[in-house]
Design a protein around this nucleic acid. Structure first.
Lengths: 200, 200, 200, 200
DNA sequence: TATGAATGAGGGTTCATTCAT
DNA sequence: CATGAATGAACCCTCATTCAT
């Protein structure tokens, strides 16, 4: 039905608008300091509506974080796929994409760190699952590399853990890193360091 | 005067009690969700007293973070000094101490991550300074090692940044890492990886 | 639009309800001793709403005082205008109206005296301006009288100052004056005294 | 006993110091905004001591007001007595003294107005009694004048009421009056006006 | 659907007052 | 007498949430 579809689209748009406003506000002032009224105002609609789209403030936070993590899940595999077959090239592409997403969303990344515990256990589990899902493509690349002999045998999970930490580090310590690096050179420097450790 | 000293000691103890209770509560429920009344109750004293020792809730948070960072500043140099002259041994000692402090203080570490941004600019600056101070001993060890030829030439600050991130990683992702590592093996695994990258 | 008007009316009514409750309470117990919860309770609505209509407790006090002063501004000129052309009659009408308003609003008048200084400089200025505005009609009457020869030349401002003080005196010392006077006889006695001084 | 006397003197001095500090503070910030700690600090002693000299904060306020009113009670009769036998001269002397005390203690006068109601009924009664006592000398002067034919027959209490109101008016509306008058000319102008009304 | 007026529990903070030293 | 650390009741204010329109 055309009407139903139109309505659904409208709903989708509304949701996106609210999430977008919430991301901005949560980043600017932190989840707790930002009020639902402010979110409503910035999104250009009424408080009541927020409660129709998201049951409560915490659910909105969850949606916001999921939205951010979603970008990683969507973009990293694409970039890896587009980079050919060489494990090193694939790793480089994946990591660079990861850091790029973080850079475009620096405050959002911090938000995930700051407010992860704010969520109730349910939400926390959802986030953890998404984080693992997000890291999976990088994990696969390392595994492939190890299988093909391009990388030595190491604890994949530790390496992935480090990759992700170092990527997040770009947001976490941006105030210091930005003096010596830009996104691209940071990613390269980290990759060089890692490759020295895991190349045969 | 004995009395003056006794009073000072009492004051010190009180401060420590409050900070300790605050760390627990802030980490359990988050800074915003924890109430000053709860902190008072857990510390076994009255709300009013908290406000006599720390001007307000945010100052308490600041004190808590400073207190945690202080432990790094105090313990790492000692461990390094006690480990002899070999750069690798010194690095190992310093990093292990760092990870150990984090492990003993996992809640506090997470707190620093979560709530560091909650502070007003002033407090944030203070924390940043302390963080740099805290990292200095590790930084010196790397520099010595590079000077003596024990390590190849790399960007010291990047390496130190990674060391600290990976140490914090132990607290940040403890829920996952604890399945494969204990503190000690985690530190060793990370050191091995790093040494592969920076040894000639 | 009917709805908009209805809403505005409702808003006006709410404001008036809150102000009315506040006048009562502030006068009964003093501004500081009265709590916002008490005001809300007496007005039959919630605390939160008070803060939606008036930003904070002090602003409520300001509104209360402005409201009271407004009655003078509205009523005195009307009474004067309705009293003909004779300066003495006009003075009498104006002053009696002034005292009448005070009598109907004795609590409010005392409040102005007691709590006027409680306001921050901004509010104080606003009040001062209103006070001057309030006195203007009486001032004009005296000036007319002097111009027409009905009154001798005196310092208008001093005379007006005394008129207002003596009117306020009815509220300030009501506990004593009420033994000998009622509103009307008080106003007359004061007028007689004044006229002896300023009639040629 | 010399020691007992010395102790009493010390007590008297302490009391005076506290009252003096309290007057300053209460005037500067109002009774409610001033804290007992601030009073203690300004008086150069500990909070606890205030509670030994005055049972509680309200009693301190009462003492402060009594102290101020005491000055009227002490000075006006002296000035009247020193001004000879002429009723007009005596009235002038008494009123000028009254206004002078107010001028020297402008904030204290306002304090009496603002905080009179703050006191519990007991204290309020005490103040009222003192006010009447304070006005008595002026009342007597008017009565004498009426008896001697220097003044016409009027309601003494109304006249005294006006005298005192106008004197207080100097403190209450000082911000406006100070543009046209100083203490002395204000007293004279008021006296002139009054004398036109009550001289035969 | 959409609004926003209304609610009220709860939090940070203050400060008069006490009491062990 | 004198101190000042300690208490805790109480206040102002915020803000997530609801619901009549």
């Amino acid at each position: 039905m055309a009407t139903a579809t139109a309505r659904q689209q409208r709903t989708q748009r509304r949701r996106a608008e609210i999430i977008s406003a919430a991301i901005e506000l949560f980043q600017e002032r932190g989840f707790h300091a930002a009020t639902t009224h402010q979110v409503a105002e910035r999104a250009g609609l009424s408080v009541g509506l927020i409660y129709q789209y998201f049951g409560n403030k915490e659910d909105l936070l969850r949606a916001v974080i999921v939205d951010i993590l979603g970008e990683f899940r969507d973009r990293i595999p694409v970039e890896i796929a587009a980079s050919g077959a060489d494990p090193v090239a694939r790793l480089r592409a994946g990591y660079r994409a990861y850091v790029a997403v973080i850079d475009e969303n620096r405050d959002g990344t911090l938000l995930t760190y700051r407010e992860g515990l704010t969520l109730a256990p349910d939400g926390r589990e959802e986030i953890k699952k998404l984080e693992i899902e997000t890291a999976a493509p990088l994990r696969d690349v390392i595994l492939e590399g190890m299988a093909s002999g391009a990388f030595v045998d190491v604890d994949v999970d530790l390496v992935v853990h480090n990759l992700i930490l170092s990527a997040h580090g770009w947001a976490l310590k941006h105030w210091r890193l930005a003096k010596s690096y830009d996104v691209s050179s940071y990613a390269d420097a980290q990759l060089d360091l890692l490759l020295r450790a895991i190349r045969p």
